[in-house]
């Protein structure tokens, strides 16, 4: 497993796609988490980009969310939908491309048992993920500190408990989406269909189902336990503004409680990883 992990870390590190996807997430997080909100706040007098923030209360709320103690929440808010989608892509193409390139075939005839090799890939993706969340958090802290300094606000750093909670929630949400990508890449034995299906599911289908659930009560029983709902609910439970709030983030909900969402996300994570491992170990590798 250690050997497989070392091998996968080497090839993920040298893969431009890893950097492009992680970089995209960092830019999106900073842009939507800080830049646009700060620009809205700065132009509250109607002279700038946004002309609708005229009352002082809204402006205060806006500024409040840009402060350092809110950084753990900003870290989590974008993950249920957009960040999750990017990480689903990374999971899907990391595993799916191996079938198209024939690298799984090469690896499975090299030495490690199949579940050890795929386990190494999963562990390497996990390390990439943990690193990415850590870097995101640090950048969010720097951005919020910069805003606080620029606006002459007192700098209140988030407590250790809040930071740990935010980091853990972010890791769980993104790991669940990435594992979904790994399962899709394994099922479809290729990157294209896996990414397509994953994105349609995470960005479109769940939202449509939630819309239907509003009209048909029983459907809600199903939509309440879907992966996207669980991810959104955990983000909401941590403190992110839901998509129905003004200035809320798409994908964030308050459908189920934080504990239920955590258990559900953990269950999906285990299910997706175990499903991928079982399928990989049992199937015929013919490409």
């Amino acid at each position: 497993m250690i050997a497989s992990l070392r091998a996968e870390l080497l090839r993920l590190r040298r893969w431009p796609v890893t950097w492009v996807l992680c970089g995209t997430w960092l830019v999106l997080n900073l842009a939507f988490g800080y830049l646009f909100n700060y620009l809205s706040y700065r132009s509250r007098d109607g002279s700038g980009f946004a002309e609708n923030i005229t009352d002082a209360a809204t402006a205060r709320v806006l500024l409040r969310h840009l402060m350092p103690d809110q950084a753990p929440i900003t870290l989590v808010a974008g993950l249920p939908m957009f960040g999750g989608a990017l990480l689903l892509i990374l999971g899907a193409i990391t595993v799916g491309s191996g079938y198209g390139w024939g690298t799984w075939k090469t690896i499975f005839t090299t030495r490690p048992r199949r579940h050890t090799a795929l386990g190494g890939t999963m562990a390497a993706l996990g390390i990439v993920l943990a690193g990415l969340i850590a870097v995101t958090f640090v950048l969010d802290l720097i951005a919020s500190f910069t805003v606080a300094a620029a606006e002459s606000q007192p700098t209140t750093w988030p407590s250790l408990a809040d930071s740990a909670q935010g980091f853990g929630a972010a890791l769980l949400i993104s790991a669940m989406w990435m594992a979904a990508g790994v399962l899709l890449g394994t099922l479809t034995r290729g990157p294209a269909l896996a990414v397509g299906l994953g994105l349609v599911w995470s960005l479109v289908v769940e939202n449509l189902l939630r819309g239907v659930a509003g009209l048909l009560g029983p459907v809600a029983n199903v939509t309440d336990v879907l992966p996207g709902t669980a991810a959104g609910s955990l983000a909401g439970a941590v403190g992110a503004l839901t998509q129905s709030d003004p200035n809320g983030t798409p994908g964030v909900t308050a459908v189920i409680g934080g504990t239920a969402a955590t258990i559900l996300l953990g269950a999906y994570l285990v299910l997706f990883l175990a499903g991928s491992l079982t399928l990989t170990a049992r199937r015929d590798v013919t490409t």
Binding site: A3, S4, A7, R14, G102, W104, R111
Partner: peptide, 24 residues
């Protein structure tokens, strides 16, 4: 088996390094 299967974005040497790590 049935044609070489390698990571297209890695160099030949890095491809072998990845496999060498897998093989210990």
């Amino acid at each position: 088996i049935e044609g070489p299967g390698f990571y297209p974005y890695l160099t030949g040497r890095d491809n072998l390094r990845v496999l060498a790590r897998y093989a210990g």
